[in-house]
């Protein structure tokens, strides 16, 4: 894990100490920590000399910028219409069962967080989901435990 201050500094170097660096900074922190803590937002505000409320206003606008602690793997199951037609509800139920959490929750070991998400542009390969940035397509209920096992093993 990197120090948040270092992430911010690196992004500022790339994008300038101006507000247009904000989203890259937020993404940089997300990439490392999966969420933006309150204190980190204050730190960002300080570095860019904008108000903390402004950081929060922008951060909260975007679905991929979380302000609550998330698991190492954030699963986002597509809920758009064609995935819906291809049993995304079944996929979701299977994930809930395997992970023993409900939609929106994080597993006790902080490994997985389960979300749904609007169209991820894989409509021809649905049902589909993202685990962090990686797409998983043509999902079936049978595939879910296998994918999760893979991810759990990656941990070790």
């Amino acid at each position: 894990m990197l120090e948040v201050a270092n992430i911010i500094e690196a992004k500022i170097e790339q994008y300038g100490r101006e507000r247009q660096a904000l989203i890259p900074i937020l993404q940089g922190i997300i990439a490392d920590k999966n969420f933006i803590a309150k204190d980190d937002m204050v730190l960002i505000a300080k570095e860019l000399d904008i108000s903390a409320a402004d950081v929060y206003g922008t951060a909260s606008f975007f679905s991929f910028i979380e302000d609550e602690r998330k698991g190492k793997y954030v699963i986002r199951v597509c809920k758009s219409i064609t995935c819906d037609m291809k049993n995304r509800r079944g996929i979701l139920a299977s994930l809930e069962k395997e992970l023993r959490i409900k939609l929106g929750e994080t597993t006790h070991d902080n490994l997985f967080t389960l979300h749904d998400v609007n169209c991820i542009g894989l409509c021809d390969q649905g049902p589909a989901m993202l685990i962090n940035d990686e797409p998983y397509t043509h999902l079936t209920v049978e595939k879910i435990p296998i994918i999760l096992r893979e991810k759990r093993n990656q941990k070790n």
Binding site: C119, G121, L122
Partner: peptide, 11 residues
């Protein structure tokens, strides 16, 4: 920023 549900050509 191809976000329209049902669109994936840009991808």
């Amino acid at each position: 920023d191809e976000g329209e549900p049902g669109t994936f050509k840009d991808r």
